[in-house]
Amino acid sequence: MSWSPLIYKFVDGGEVPVPLDMALVRAVLEPHHVEDPQLTVAEDGTLQFWIRASDGSEAELFAHENGILVSRPQADGVFGIIAELVSRLGAVIIDPSEGGVVCRAEEHAHLPAGMRDDAIVIEMTGEAVETALTGPRRP
């Protein structure tokens, strides 16, 4: 895939995303990071991860305190890692190509009012995230 979903956290309907728990981001992603751990922090402080799921699927993630860019997520297992991260952060996923929001019921009420009506509320699993963002798989 060539699109890049975004992960943000909103609180109490605020229009501006709130800072993420970067220690939690590291805790979830570091076990799946395939590069030298010394290379995870860029000069500007952005955390960079190249993650790989047990099935071999991969994605690059660029995290700063207000959001995470998921670059080129491949199908299958990597979406499980993304779902875990989003769930543990209490965050949402935004598909910039469609402008849609994917979230759990717990985060729906925290979205800005303008995002609530079109949000896709799911159980935050890898399969559900992948289906919500890419559509159902064809046999």
Rank of each mutant, 00 (worst) to 15 (best):
P73A: 11
E58A: 02
L24S: 04
E123R: 12
Q48H: 03
P5Y: 15
A109P: 02
D44P: 10
D76L: 06
G67I: 04
V101W: 06
S87K: 15
G114K: 15
E84K: 02
L29N: 05
V28F: 10
L133P: 03
L6M: 11
Y8S: 14
L111A: 02
M124S: 12
T40K: 12
I120V: 14
D118M: 00
H33P: 01
E130K: 15
P17H: 03
P96K: 08
V70T: 10
R26D: 11
I81Y: 02
M22W: 03
V70D: 08
D21N: 09
A132H: 07
I93C: 09
Q48A: 07
D76M: 09
E130F: 13
G14K: 03
R116E: 10
A75W: 00
G45H: 11
E106M: 07
P5W: 08
Y8P: 01
V86K: 10
Y8G: 05
S87C: 01
P112L: 11
H33C: 04
I82S: 04
S71K: 06
D12C: 02
G14T: 09
A119N: 07
V16F: 10
V102E: 06
P73F: 08
S54I: 01
D55T: 05
V129N: 04
L89N: 13
L111S: 04
T131P: 01
E35I: 01
V121S: 11
R88Q: 15
F49Q: 04
G67V: 10
I7Y: 06
A119I: 13
G56V: 13
P31W: 04
V16Y: 11
I93P: 01
V18L: 12
V16N: 12
G100A: 13
R137M: 04
R52Y: 04
D118V: 08
S54H: 00
V92L: 09
E35M: 07
A105K: 15
A23H: 07
L29D: 02
I94A: 14
L85Y: 14
D76E: 15
P136L: 14
M1Y: 10
R88G: 05
F79K: 10
G126I: 12
K9V: 06
L20I: 08
V92S: 14
E30T: 14
M1A: 13
V70F: 07
G135D: 13
H33E: 00
A105C: 01
I93A: 00
G99Y: 03
